[in-house]
Amino acid sequence: MAGPVYRGGLPPTERDENTPAINMGRLWGGGIATAVVAALFAAAGVLIMRGVLDIPIMAPKSQGTFGDSTTAAYMVMAGVGGILATLLLHLLILMAPAPLSFYSWIAGLATLMITVLPFAAGTTLSVKVATALINFVVGMVYVALLPQVAAASLRSAPARPEVRGPR
């Protein structure tokens, strides 16, 4: 007599050899590290634009090299973007075929959108270009680092020993 039949052919607690296992600690640890890198790139970009190139992004010139609380909020949003990108990647790994390809397309298009977004603001061209450049670099952090984090977090499920016997 055959055992119970499950959709996909395996009981819910078993995986076939082709099902990837994900190391959650490694994925989310790498995602948090990516978020920190993105936030630091945002801060460095603001410092370069304001302090070196004298372009008053994120705050008026009178606020100094780092700007005001807007700069801190910009850094936090860059970090939150990294966490959200990690969540998206995690969901794609669990549910999508070719998750790294889909992630790369989604992250690339989101990077395009955040790069173009400053040009919709009513400010000087230099501020628009400077902000777009920082946004592009922050987006590229997500595009470049998170697929590597995911690849390092995925491992094949351990093969089950083959049981031979009468059928």
Rank of each mutant, 00 (worst) to 15 (best):
117 L>K: 12
1 M>E: 07
74 Y>V: 06
96 A>W: 02
153 S>M: 10
77 M>A: 14
167 R>H: 11
9 G>M: 01
32 I>V: 15
81 G>I: 04
8 G>R: 05
107 A>W: 00
59 A>M: 08
135 N>W: 08
51 G>N: 03
119 F>E: 12
137 V>Y: 00
92 L>C: 05
126 S>H: 12
115 T>N: 06
55 I>K: 06
166 P>Y: 12
122 G>C: 05
105 W>S: 10
84 L>V: 15
96 A>D: 05
120 A>D: 07
126 S>T: 14
52 V>H: 09
43 A>K: 07
131 T>S: 14
123 T>C: 05
13 T>R: 09
104 S>H: 10
11 P>T: 08
107 A>T: 08
1 M>F: 07
154 L>W: 04
104 S>L: 15
163 V>E: 10
157 A>R: 13
85 A>R: 04
115 T>F: 14
106 I>R: 02
58 M>N: 15
46 V>Y: 04
118 P>D: 01
101 S>P: 01
147 P>G: 02
36 V>N: 03
1 M>A: 10
73 A>S: 13
122 G>S: 14
117 L>E: 13
152 A>R: 15
46 V>Q: 05
142 Y>N: 08
113 M>K: 08
55 I>T: 11
67 G>I: 01
108 G>I: 05
6 Y>P: 01
44 A>S: 13
159 A>Y: 04
53 L>G: 04
96 A>I: 03
55 I>S: 06
93 I>Q: 14
69 S>D: 12
27 L>K: 06
48 I>D: 03
10 L>E: 01
121 A>Y: 14
117 L>A: 15
20 P>G: 04
73 A>N: 10
88 L>R: 00
42 A>W: 00
153 S>H: 07
13 T>H: 13
81 G>R: 06
84 L>N: 09
9 G>T: 01
6 Y>C: 02
155 R>E: 11
110 A>C: 13
54 D>K: 14
29 G>M: 00
12 P>S: 05
133 L>D: 03
56 P>F: 10
73 A>L: 15
145 L>G: 00
97 P>K: 15
31 G>H: 08
2 A>E: 10
60 P>W: 05
125 L>T: 14
45 G>A: 05
101 S>E: 12
53 L>R: 12
131 T>D: 11
160 R>T: 12
102 F>D: 07
107 A>N: 00
127 V>W: 02
31 G>K: 09
162 E>K: 12
63 Q>P: 02
19 T>V: 14
23 N>R: 13
45 G>W: 04
42 A>K: 07
34 T>L: 02
40 L>H: 00
98 A>V: 11
160 R>S: 12
2 A>D: 09
22 I>P: 03
50 R>P: 04
134 I>P: 05
131 T>V: 11
124 T>Y: 09
36 V>D: 02
44 A>C: 10
38 A>Q: 03
54 D>A: 14
120 A>R: 08
69 S>N: 13
94 L>K: 15
74 Y>Q: 12
39 A>V: 06
75 M>Q: 09
63 Q>W: 08
67 G>E: 05
54 D>I: 01
63 Q>R: 11
9 G>C: 01
145 L>M: 15
